[in-house]
Design a protein around this nucleic acid. Structure first.
Lengths: 144, 144
DNA sequence: TATAATTGGTAGCTTTTGTAACTTATAAGC
DNA sequence: GCTTATAAGTTACAAAAGCTACCAATTATA
């Protein structure tokens, strides 16, 4: 147990993943938080609508793997910021189509570029081969 | 923007890391939660004390990179479960040395083994080379 | 065509986290 | 020695997440 080769916290994959996720997320958070006062949940919803176009809250739940209450609150917050509009569906009045306003699109475009360059910066710390393996392993673990 | 090769959420490293971390953590959580009613913060504190021996709350903060209020609450919860004891230091009466009780050690030993086999199971999904690269990249990103 | 079951979305309550202020103890400046 | 600063740890209050129950619209079923 006090053996030098013994299993350590730094060898425990869930711990490693959490530390890496936390650090990178906190760093990127600066952008959407400082500029737009957004939360992580809001940034995710914004990304989905900006990147993939109009969709319902349920579709966002599935794609982003977020609980529906989380999405509901993020949508309300984005609407409050005038970044998002809702329009009731004609075929099923329970659901509403969500879309971005001009301001929402502008925020998305801005953050989308930041995300790209942030990702590039992260990848640049490793060789292309390492980065490719890292991405593949993470996708596999995340079941994406 | 609707280009097939365009930057996608699945290409965004912080998102990938979060999804992978969340999935693996939720899975392992089953063990400490179901058997001992522990929270993640408590499991981390238990791990530190079990693996590295007695130390103060401040040392746990540094090693585990947890905020001192989080540690304080986890310590209180572990004490409540009779897994942990405190003893005031003679040289500095502000700090107290934290250690595990017999029950705490038993819980640690159990979970330590589970953690090892869990990690092994995760690693087995990849080749040894891939696993090594994955670990190195994560350590680098997490600045460990 | 009633009635039960399901679905999209919201609201309320509880648990957990984050932040700042506070308490007590030590260290530093003069 | 006496003030001031800093550190360890706790507490209190606010923000956020999780969970359950709920409402209203739709679909399935008897």
């Amino acid at each position: 147990m006090s053996d030098k080769n013994a299993f350590d916290l730094r060898d425990f994959m869930p711990y490693l993943l959490n530390q890496a996720a936390e650090i990178s997320s906190l760093e990127f958070q600066q952008y959407y938080r400082a500029r737009y006062g957004m939360l992580r949940t809001e940034w995710r919803v914004l990304f989905h609508l900006g990147r993939y176009g109009e969709m319902t809250a349920r579709e966002i739940c599935e794609r982003a793997r977020m609980h529906k209450t989380k999405v509901s609150r993020a949508v309300a917050a984005l609407q409050e910021k005038r970044f998002l509009t809702r329009s009731q569906s004609d075929t099923d009045r329970r659901q509403e189509q969500l879309g971005l306003t001009a301001a929402g699109k502008a925020a998305f475009d801005d953050l989308y570029l930041e995300a790209q360059s942030f990702d590039k910066k992260m990848a640049s710390r490793f060789t292309p081969e390492e980065t490719a393996i890292l991405r593949r392993c993470l996708m596999e673990i995340a079941r994406l």
